[in-house]
Structure formats: structure tokens, C-alpha cells
Amino acid sequence: MIRDEVPGPLQSVEESSLSFPAGATKAEKTRLRLEAIEHSGRLVIGRGPRGSHITRVVLSVMLGLLGLLVLVLGAEGFVALAGFVFFGVFSFVVPIVITKRYGQDHRLELTPDRFELIRIEKDVEATVEESWANVTRVTTVSSGHQPASPQFPVVDVFSSTGARSGFSLFSGDPHGARIVFNQQLEVGRWELYELLDAAHQRFRPQDEGATGDQH
């Protein structure tokens, strides 16, 4: 379910943070987060640190400079064209996209009944909301076609049409049955995957479990 509305008060940093013992493993953090969901009724996971977006912008510009270097060295023909495109895309287009996405405030809220993925942009709150009963499985998807491309957590949910089209808060079909968590959150991608998978296993209705395991 998706809704657009004027946002209410945002969660404070204290509400979105948990204290973990020194040296806690991912499994221990997942267990503590699940306990927080059960005891408090909700766990809020906020946006990732500012440094992550700055680092990606710097790395993109550095890649773009490689294309400029090709032009400076006097490349001609197809190589020169490729260098020009490389320079333009990684020096301007990608940094703009990264900066625009970072300008969107977003958070993930987990409860024993459902999860909500929320984006706030220009004073409008867009929420993707799904019940654990509607989740069929939790998996990952690659952001590119290369083996080294980042993997992002994905939640597959029931669709009235039976289709499995892509959806994220940044792009995709809002009526699809696949939700991609490609936002930079304060919980890393693999920790988030394990948390979503564990929450699905714990909170989904037991009489729906057999359906959720068939894939």
C-alpha cells in the first residue's frame, strides 16, 4: 500500500538508535533489534551517515577524471568519444543523482505487524507499507550487471495481478510486487537483509507460512 501525505513529526535520533555490546556480531544485533520491535512495538532505522554520500560523489568524480585524462592524452575516434561520455556521466550526471537522492529524507519503520519504507521530499511523505502476511520472501538483487555490483535487500510481496515488477522509493512501478531497499540507511545492506529476513520469519502469521516459503 502506498500513500502520499504531509509528514508528521520525524523520529528523533534516539528513537532510531540502539546500543549494542562491544564486539556484537550481526546475528546478535539482529536479535536485539527483533527484541526491540517486540518490546517497544516499533523500530525506526534512519538514513545513513552523511559521509557515505560524500564518498560516493568523490569516487564518481575521480572516475570521470579518467575519461578526461583519455582526452588530454590525445585519444581519437571511438576512444575519444568513450572518454568524453565517461567524463560527462561520472563527473556530472552521477554526482547530481547521488546528491538529489541524499536530499530525500527517508527511514524504515518495523513493527510486529508490518514494515513501512518512508521518503520525504518537498514536504510530501511517500510511504510504502506492507504487512508481514503479504511478504512471500526476502532476498537480494544486484544494482548492475557486473559480478561486483552492490547487492540490495529485496522484499517480494503478493500482487493482485500476480506480476513481479520492480519498485523502490526512487523508481519503479508502485503497483509491483518487489520492493528494493536501495536507500542508504544507518544499517548496512547485509545487516538489513538479515534483519528483514528474520523479522519476516518471526512476525508472519503462521497459517501463511507455507505460502511464503514456496518460491
Results as ranks from 00 to 15, higher is better:
I2D: 02
R3A: 13
V13S: 11
E15F: 03
S16K: 13
L18R: 15
K26H: 08
E28T: 05
E28P: 01
L34W: 07
E35W: 01
A36D: 05
H39M: 00
V44D: 11
P49K: 09
G51F: 13
G51D: 02
S52L: 11
R56K: 15
V57H: 00
S60R: 06
V61Y: 12
V61F: 03
G67P: 07
V70L: 12
L73V: 07
G74Q: 10
E76Y: 01
F78R: 09
L81Y: 14
F84Q: 07
F84I: 03
V85R: 04
F87V: 00
V93Y: 15
V93K: 01
P95E: 09
I98K: 05
K100A: 15
L108R: 03
L108S: 08
E109I: 14
L110Y: 07
R114Q: 15
F115M: 10
E116L: 08
I120P: 06
E121F: 13
E121Q: 13
K122A: 15
V135L: 06
V135D: 12
T136C: 02
R137V: 08
V138G: 03
Q146E: 03
S149T: 01
V155A: 15
D156N: 12
V157Y: 04
F158G: 04
G162T: 06
A163Q: 14
F167Y: 13
G172D: 01
D173S: 10
F181R: 08
Q184K: 11
V187G: 00
L192W: 02
R204D: 05
T211C: 01
G212V: 12
